[in-house]
Write a protein that binds this DNA or RNA. Sequence first.
DNA 1: ATCCTACGATAGACAATGTCTAAGTCAAGT
DNA 2: ACTTGACTTAGACATTGTCTATCGTAGGAT
Lengths: 139, 139
Amino acid sequence: MSDLLERLRGRGWRMTAQRRVVAEVLDGDHVHLTADEVHARAVTRLPEISRATVYNTLGEMVTLGEVMEVATDGRAKRYDPNAHRPHQHLVCGRCGAIRDVHPAGDPLADLPASERFGFTISDVEVTYRGICPGCASTA
Amino acid sequence: MSDLLERLRGRGWRMTAQRRVVAEVLDGDHVHLTADEVHARAVTRLPEISRATVYNTLGEMVTLGEVMEVATDGRAKRYDPNAHRPHQHLVCGRCGAIRDVHPAGDPLADLPASERFGFTISDVEVTYRGICPGCASTA
DNA sequence: ATCCTACGATAGACAATGTCTAAGTCAAGT
DNA sequence: ACTTGACTTAGACATTGTCTATCGTAGGAT
């Protein structure tokens, strides 16, 4: 059952059919759907759900820190329900497949003070780019 | 004078007034303009230049590897002429300011084989997020 | 159980960014 | 100076995301 839904429930969220469906559709590992993909899947369970509601709901989940927003390609943002465990992303440049990965080490430690320009740094995002095995074999 | 323009010249590029203006507008350090910002600046020098040409020209420069495309915010892509020297980006979450930074170490080495899922990795992008000194003082 | 009310959902207009097409223009080799 | 294919243009179109006015409903109060 959806961890995501459980966590949202415990936050005073008014539970509606729409929010439940969005949370259910988004649940899982290595899930990185665009807002429109979420909407398409939600519609199969709740035909009258609107695009605006999907956008609103995803935005609220991001604000609550329960979902990560990922912009790997400059196109549509993707939504990653795996926000409770820090991770980075590995992206196939040909087919767009995305995997969650867990690098060793702390990239923040690699940025010397002289390269911080006085910024207070709160987060580091790492995106690995390459070609996935499937795409490599059909080169 | 523009290194960028020099490098483009040596690649069999047909040199037009439009391309020259785009390359000149984009030149410099810590430059990260959106396509529309490039267009706005180009228009002041060459009033009849079209949006399509700016998009085309930027796209070609990216393909040639002379300009980096940066998607730091899920909004408009930004274009960084500093492609000849590898670097990463530091972004202010409040005002959107972007600085080029040079972390020590190799982030690729931090990704164990077991976390590569058979991908052939060709590139790593790191984005540091935080608050710049100016925004911090007007908190 | 029913009623209220504020919060959520809806449709569709609008906005921002990017892509494509058809026709005109021009850089550069001959 | 020609010629030609690459370049440019205006504007339509596509995609992604946001906003507004109105309607519906979850959940507490009675």
